[in-house]
Design a protein around this nucleic acid. Structure first.
Lengths: 187, 187
DNA sequence: CTCCTATGCCAACAGATGTTGGCCAACTGT
DNA sequence: ACAGTTGGCCAACATCTGTTGGCATAGGAG
């Protein structure tokens, strides 16, 4: 019992497969519509295994929705390029990783998911914004505004799939939204 | 049979009560979690009545999610105040009307809701943006960008309830987000 | 007053869902 | 080789969901 993390368990591969299937299903169908049976079927495994390894559907979602913005160190970025850099970073971070879409979809039905988004964008973003010294009073507000634009972009691009937003290439998005973020950060 | 819309039916009040309860429930709980039984209980009515009057849960949602942006005539607005006017209009339109929140929450689970949002913001917004003559090629894109910011604001304010965004008063929101919309419209 | 229709409720069904317990096979340390 | 542990599956349960049909009652037309 003293070495819980040392020996790799034989079932780790299965665990990972379940997690991958769960993320994909949660992202595609939302929390309620993504049934344990469907996730288990995708992972070619019995539904009861999901319960054994993750305790409950809530537990599975909690594990699947682990997400880190991985924000770069903003102190090393030219101050007038902050918006541009941030928008590009968000796009890179989100394309090819279902987790944020899953989180966003689930936020509508699962209070825990909304709470998680709140923590991610409050803690991580606020911390990053605070690194370059703006007025501490407005820091939280600036972070909130950045979140509103970036989450709105994610919403219209990956969930609602609003055609004009979907069709924009990354470079165009950066060119348009970059100045907005720049304004929220230093306006 | 020739006068289907003339005589007001005695059950119109019940119909309206159901619709009000449905909007509130859909807005608060999302499409899947808002059960017909719960809606019926709120309306102090039997669940079977909901089916009789609206055919199915989908039908009820379709009726409850009727939404119009009611955009003002933008040709009569000073060109450099467009962003400010639009943001204030959106805020006024959304506070005190659950419909958009219901639509937004449901978009995660109900494909029809996403489609409806797409139509609202593609048709109505694009039309409004097109009234003042910008380059028609970029009109759709501008409308999409406005939608991304306004829907992001609604998402963080009414669904995710991100504290800094919730705590901002309407005037502050207009002051911060107005220039963004202005930039998307005429930048 | 008498029909007929509209309005409402009750009870039930069929299907799906999260969750549980028991059983078998495969692996592993001794 | 053996015993114990781990990984996996099957079947079942309790609950909840949308939905349906039948039955009572109230209101208006004749």
């Amino acid at each position: 019992m003293t070495e819980s993390a040392t020996r790799p368990r034989r079932s780790d591969a299965t665990r990972a497969t379940i997690l991958r299937a769960a993320r994909a299903r949660f992202a595609a169908d939302g929390y309620d519509r993504a049934t344990i049976r469907a996730i288990a079927a995708d992972a070619r495994i019995d539904p009861s295994m999901v319960m054994r390894y993750y305790g409950s559907k809530e537990g599975l979602f909690a594990a699947a929705a682990e997400f880190d913005l991985r924000l770069p160190d903003l102190t090393e970025v030219a101050p007038d390029r902050l918006g541009e850099v941030l928008v590009r970073h968000f796009l890179d971070r989100w394309e090819g990783d279902d987790t944020l879409a899953a989180l966003l979809r689930a936020a509508s039905a699962n209070p825990g998911a909304a709470e998680r988004i709140r923590r991610i964008f409050t803690d991580q973003l606020t911390a990053a914004v605070a690194t370059f010294g703006t007025d501490p009073v407005t820091t939280a507000r600036r972070a909130g505004l950045v979140a509103s634009q970036m989450l709105g972009l994610a919403l219209t691009r990956y969930i609602v799939r609003l055609p004009p937003v979907v069709e924009m290439g990354p470079a165009e998005v950066v060119a348009w939204v970059g100045p907005t973020i720049q304004h929220y950060l230093r306006g």
